[in-house]
Design a protein around this nucleic acid. Structure first.
Lengths: 346, 346
DNA sequence: ACAACCCCTGGAACTGGTTCCACACCCTAA
DNA sequence: TTAGGGTGTGGAACCAGTTCCAGGGGTTGT
């Protein structure tokens, strides 16, 4: 590897400005104790030499990397949903001169904590100050992260198999109230036979189901859960659910899908069978993905502000870094029901 | 800010293992010259003390950050397309123990280079070794990057307004041959009246148009370019183009869309007007976005391997870092036409 | 006139690794 | 027996910043 050309150092700048090295450092950190003329002379020398301070050297003394890692686990692709969270993290971070590292991790839920092979960033130390966990999070991963004493905040909606006694910083959004409001909206439009389609073995879909059930119960309506066997994907799950919905007696007038992908699969399969949305059956989704507006008619769904999730994660992580002993906190961000074109007044 | 607890250092490990600090360093860097017993003693001490070397300290000596930045410019959101490129970069990088920083930048094409406000990562020095540029790239940005002597590789498909004399490392995919093959496929299926829909003021769409035109010319067919006024988005562009296509005499039997979003807009608008794809009109797209398979019927399109682009960018950047004086290189990755359901045999 | 104080400033010491030189030690060959 | 070579090891010097302490010089108070 060729030698990297040496860059200007603080000592050269000190020489050029005829001051001591301490003074340069004081100017750089804008600590007050520098006279106006000296500061001007130093700044001029910095400009003339094109000096840019070496970040590593500062970090080693400050014991702060000013960098956090966004760790996406068990996703074979950076979905728009998580991509937006990442952008929320980055935009908030860069405003505070913090940097964001992106890393991916694949592990099995059953791999014991000490066997989980962490990405290179987490093997060294001093590289990052903290971690934002996104993607599917199983207890073993948390154990592993805790074992290296790395402060972290988790995006909690995709946390799986965690007991209530688990304590860590987390940010999530309100699954329960999301479907609660969506379902109330349907009921308000005169719907009585409403089904819910999702695989409720996922904790977050289970919470959405509970929100739906709550709305049904408070209106003394019967709830019905639609599932399907061996789906290839959420879209496929939706497609396979369509038949099951149509075969119910009496035929439901509306369906609440566990997420937008299921809603999409449902919509597509219904349309193929000549069932019109929303004329024959109303449909609502959850997540407000990019594709929701592209559907025809555009999907009424529960909006989640993904940038805000990212921003909140970053904010919480910084608080944790400033106050390591602070008690753990949990933030649930509100959701919003977005009315588009897939719900009909009965 | 609370003090960060001091971590174990190499000197403490040396003490614990009763060896010199140099030996610890040699063990860490697995440079051969250490006897088996000493190495074992050192490793044991490392394990016992839970020692993890400080990354910053090494970097300062090595003059290598082992970190690159993926800079996304002028995108208000990390699109799946670029998200995949990022993942390609990350997966290749992490295999080589390199880290990837994510940063976003917004600038106007007309902002003079010295006025472009670079993200924090690029203001310090020593933080990253190089840069991967994605998003829309105007000459002024390149000028700015060059002014801070930061090695970079650009994802070149979205480069705008660059003269041929511009020299820099770039990775892109083959717009021209992509549509050339797609159009040939249509012609092979018996189509003669084929239109191309896109705003060719974008250089990459212009190249795709040229590919289409080449295929038409070599078959002595007349080409036709469809554009639309003041589109809100590519999807909208497609929607607005549908009418213009249908009003042509004779009516085209196939359309090549500049990208999948235009294809989607076209498809949606055609379907609303009762024109069936592919029965009444065949359609091909470009990019193979996630949504392409979700369309009904799934869209035949030109596939671009986004992960491979990311991987190649990273590979090329590392070469540049190893050989700073190497002449600039340009890689054009091949595309592949994916046959799905939107092309009909005439 | 001298002490007390504040404002600036210089530079040694430090951070936690890597590098390199000196040297101890052992083995082999002359 | 001694020179020569290779292997293994210790630790000083170094990297490029920050921190902190010691002082210089001016101003004010007595």
């Amino acid at each position: 590897m060729e030698a990297v050309p040496r860059k200007t150092t603080i000592r050269e700048v000190a020489q050029a400005a005829s001051v001591g090295i301490g003074t340069i450092s004081r100017v750089l950190n804008s600590s007050s104790q520098v006279s106006r003329e000296t500061r001007a002379r130093v700044l001029e020398a910095i400009r003339r030499l094109g000096f840019r301070p070496n970040a590593q050297a500062r970090r080693i003394l400050k014991r702060r990397a000013e960098m956090v890692c966004f760790l996406l686990s068990n996703r074979d692709f950076l979905h728009p949903f998580h991509a937006r969270i990442l952008q929320g993290v980055e935009s908030y971070a860069s405003g505070l001169k913090q940097h964001v590292l992106f890393a991916a991790l694949h592990y099995s839920p059953r791999t014991p904590p000490d066997r989980i092979d962490l990405p290179p960033v987490l093997q060294e130390h001093g590289l990052i100050d903290g971690l934002i966990l996104a993607g599917t999070i199983y207890p073993n991963l948390l154990r592993r992260i805790e074992s290296i004493n790395m402060p972290f905040v988790a995006f909690s909606n995709n946390v799986v198999g965690m007991g209530d006694e688990e304590q860590f910083d987390q940010v999530g959004f309100d699954d329960f109230n999301g479907t609660l409001h969506a379902t109330r909206h349907l009921i308000g439009k005169g719907h009585r036979h409403i089904v819910f389609a999702a695989d409720v073995s996922y904790p977050w879909l289970r919470r959405r189901f509970e929100g739906y059930r709550q709305a049904m119960r408070e209106n003394k309506l019967k709830h019905a859960l639609i599932t399907s066997r061996n789906p290839q994907s959420f879209v496929d799950f939706g497609q396979k659910s369509a038949g099951r919905i149509l075969s119910r007696q009496p035929r439901p007038t509306a369906a609440v899908a566990g997420n937008d992908e299921i809603a999409y699969g449902l919509w597509r399969s219904l349309r193929r069978q000549g069932v019109k949305v929303p004329d024959d059956i109303s449909l609502v989704g959850f997540d407000d993905r990019e594709e929701a507006v592209l559907m025809d008619p555009p999907l009424s769904t529960v909006r989640v502000d993904k940038e805000e999730i990212g921003e909140t994660c970053m904010k919480m992580l910084l608080e944790r870094l400033h106050h390591p002993r602070m008690t753990f906190s949990q933030r649930i961000l509100p959701t919003e029901f977005v009315i588009r074109g897939t719900v009909r007044q009965l």
